[in-house]
Design a protein around this nucleic acid. Sequence first.
RNA 1: GGGCGGAUAGCUCAACGGUUUAGAGCGCCGGACUGUGGAUCCGGAUAUCCGGGUUCGAUUCCCGGUCUGCCUACCA
Length: 496
Amino acid sequence: MKDETNSEKRPEARLAPGFQDYFAKDFLKREKMIRTIASVYRRFGYEPLETPALEYLDVLGKFLPESGEPLGGVFALRDDDENWLALRYDLTAPLSRVVAQYGPTHLPTPFRRYQVGPVFRRDKPGLGRFRQFYQCDFDTVGTSSVLADAETVQVLCASFAALGFAESDYAVLVNNRKIVNAALDSVGVPAVEGTRLAVLRAIDKLDKFSRGEVRKLLTVGREDSGDFTKGAGLDARQADFVLDFAESGGSSRREVLEALNSLLGNVEAAKEGLAELAEMTNCLEAMNLPESVVSYRPGIVRGLAYYTGFVFEASLTFEFTDDDGVVRRFGSVAGGGRYDNLVERFTGQLTPATGASIGIDRLLAALNMKNPDKAADLSGLVVVTRMDKDRTAEYIRMTHELRTAGIDAEMFLGTGGFKKQMRYADRRAAEVTIIAGSDEFDRGEVSIKDMLLGEKLSKEVEGRDEWRKEQPAQFSVKREEMLSKVKEILARNRNG
RNA sequence: GGGCGGAUAGCUCAACGGUUUAGAGCGCCGGACUGUGGAUCCGGAUAUCCGGGUUCGAUUCCCGGUCUGCCUACCA
């Protein structure tokens, strides 16, 4: 309206959908969480690895075979040399590149690494679904031992425990794709990629739809919300068997193992998977992982096409009431499994690997809700106000003294009256404010205000005169005592 | 990707069935209050997503786009 020519060209300050800004509080919380998880990974012997966010598209494996054009779902761009580069969509593909590139001559075998970092997916963003999000991966490459799979489960449990979740808050479900495949073989589900995938996807929906609806997906297809999903084309007998298999369970791992043994015991193809599951059972027992936390679920398949053996899925089990009063559950926060042929893509050599990944963003939201971290909510900041601008040198010395003692301190650098300075201290969530004007300087003192206490007390004060006169939560001390008094308040805030 | 809704101030929401000055609460800014973030009172700024159509006249009706919510699909 005012300046048409310019306002046309001015960009609108806005975030691309699916991306997020992290301000101080959330950033700090996430950092702390990642540190906790990474320290668990390291305690289990995984070493850190960092790789670039951008990789060659063919390295990531997401291109159309004919044209070499990037597949949907990945952010890709062309480099000067016309080669396609793409933002990584997970941390597993870069890992397989590293293993294939440096090989056993440079890397120990098994190679066990963890990696934390953002990954990018060009999907439609939605609630809790972002186009950039953090993953915490840990994997063991170079061994097919079930021990590595069992330890992966153990790491997941240890991570949740380290984050402060109770055993009743989370659950890890375990399954083995070899058993699923054998089960499908045994009823004659065609070993065609398309059919198999459709069946697996259908099974995966058992916790979302009723058995009857999933049955439709297994057979003729299903219509919902204006969209038709093609069925897997199984006949009635096959569908029922698949459903029975997926829903078979028991009250303990051994019971499920037995149920599966009796269901598939005489299927030759199931032998390997069942043996692995039996070994897993022994390992989990030796690891003392409670039945209530780690259980077997033949219906867990984790859509991913590349899993070849064990699959894991960890979810938070507690319920909460969201802003709209609806009772919800967080659901899956980590997943993983065995992928024995991901490195083969590069080397032609079969390279067994297993691992899992914890998704940070959802877990962080859950943690905030479940175990609000009091300490993480405290800023630890001291604001030194500048009432008398002529005494700036004094304020600088005070601020420096606090900083030297390891306290986060900030002198008010803005312009404005004292009221504004107090408001600033409030905004910054300062825990302590240092106040010194001519009154204090004359006496060789400083006033110290406990901001948290002050906020609490302010609720009890009615009128302004009372508020001004009493100055609750504020006291004056000799200049030399400033540091020790500030320390006292900071310590008190932390210890309740 | 498919289906159905929605889009009014920083936020949450109003505005009969089309026409005045598009309102409120919260928040924000300022004042009452040379030195105190709360409370109270007073004052102030800020909005109809974009483009087209119908009309004397559109926040309102129609079409398209964008964004957004839910469902569904997908999820390496």
